[in-house]
Design a protein around this nucleic acid. Sequence first.
DNA 1: CGTGTAAGGAATTCTGACACG
DNA 2: CGTGTAAGGAATTCTGACACG
Lengths: 107, 107
Amino acid sequence: MTGGPSYKERKVITIGVVSELTGLTERQIRYYEERKLIFPERSPKGNRKYSFADVEQLIEIANKREEGVQTYEIRQEMVKAKRAEERKQRKELLRGEINARFGIQKE
Amino acid sequence: MTGGPSYKERKVITIGVVSELTGLTERQIRYYEERKLIFPERSPKGNRKYSFADVEQLIEIANKREEGVQTYEIRQEMVKAKRAEERKQRKELLRGEINARFGIQKE
DNA sequence: CGTGTAAGGAATTCTGACACG
DNA sequence: CGTGTAAGGAATTCTGACACG
C-alpha cells in the first residue's frame, strides 16, 4: 500500500511498443480507443501511454475480433463485467459494515 | 514458468518516459549506460528500451550520485554484488546435485 | 568526471480525412 | 464497421562533438 499502481497498471508504454507487443497496427489500437475499449493516458505532450494490463486487454480484443466479434459487442461485455464487479464490491463493503456494527459477538 | 520475463523485467519503456519517472535527463541516462551501469535493449530501429527494474536501478544510481559516489565506484559495487549473487547460485546448485545423488535416503 | 548544449537526421506520434465495403 | 493510407506538422530519439572543469 505505498507506491501507487503496480508494474502491471503503470501507463508507461508508447503505442509503437504496444503495436510490437500485440501485433496490432497503431491504427487498430487507436480505433479501439475511439470505440472505448481501451483507455490510455497521455504524456504531457499528448502521446498515448499504455500499461501491461492494457496490452493484455488488447490481446483479448484481438482474439475476439478474429472470432468475428464486433467492437460494439466487446464493449457491451466489458460494461457488463464492470457492473458485476461493482456489485461484488458493494456486497463486500456492506458485509463489512454489518460485521463492524453487529457482527461476530452476535453469534 | 511460461511467459518469459515478468512485468518488472520486460524492456518496454522509452528513454523519455524513463526520464520523467526518474527525474534524470536523457543525457544522464545515456551516460550511465556508457559507464555500464545500466543495460537497455534496443528496438528494431535502435531506440533504447528500459524495464521497471532499470528505472529502479537508475533511481538508486541517482541517490548515490547525490551522495557524491562516482560512477566508477557504483560500477564496482554492482560487479561485487553480482559476484556474490553468482556464488550463492552455484552453492545452491551444488547442494541440489548432492541431494539428488546422496540425499534424503542416506539419513 | 559528469553533464549541458547545439546540430542534423531519422523515426515516432498525432489528427483529420478519404477510401472500401 | 473496421482498417489502410497519404498528408503535414510536432515531438522524440540518436550519434558525435565541443564546452567546462
